[in-house]
């Protein structure tokens, strides 16, 4: 059987390597950092880890409903497609920085895409 994306990308150690780089990019990104103004760093780091695990094709228990509920307050603040794109872009840049091959990055982006409508509450 061929290896899963999560295994090919490096599993949990890869998530750990990516999480600080990714979250720093997000907090530094003027397009989206206002959505993170009042969050608790520690809780947020755990959430980012869960998100990356999912994006890397790893084990997760998110449902579409979780995505909707979890982002509803951000949608009220104006969360839209451009912000979703910015997050995916920051994720891609993180993986480039970690020398992840482009075809794996494409797979990660493909995993994120179907969550768009749930995240944006449509």
């Amino acid at each position: 059987m061929s290896k899963t994306l999560y295994e090919r990308i490096g599993g949990e150690p890869a998530v750990n390597a990516a999480v600080d780089i990714f979250y720093r990019k997000v907090l530094n990104d003027p397009r989206i950092n206002r959505f993170f103004d009042n969050v608790d760093m520690e809780k947020q780091a755990a959430k980012q880890k869960a998100f990356l695990t999912m994006a890397f094709g790893g084990p997760h228990s998110y449902t579409g409903q979780d995505m909707r509920t979890g982002h509803a307050h951000l949608v009220k603040m104006g969360l839209n497609d451009s912000h979703f794109d910015a997050v995916v872009e920051d994720l891609g840049a993180t993986l480039v920085e970690l020398n992840v091959p482009q075809e794996l990055i494409n797979e990660v982006v493909a995993i994120c895409e179907p969550t768009r409508n749930d995240v944006l509450g449509r």
């Binding site: 755990a46 880890k49 869960a50 695990t53 084990p59 997760h60 228990s61």
Partner: peptide, 8 residues
């Protein structure tokens, strides 16, 4: 919650 070591 997550039962796999992510959420603590």
């Amino acid at each position: 919650a997550c039962k796999k070591g992510t959420c603590h």
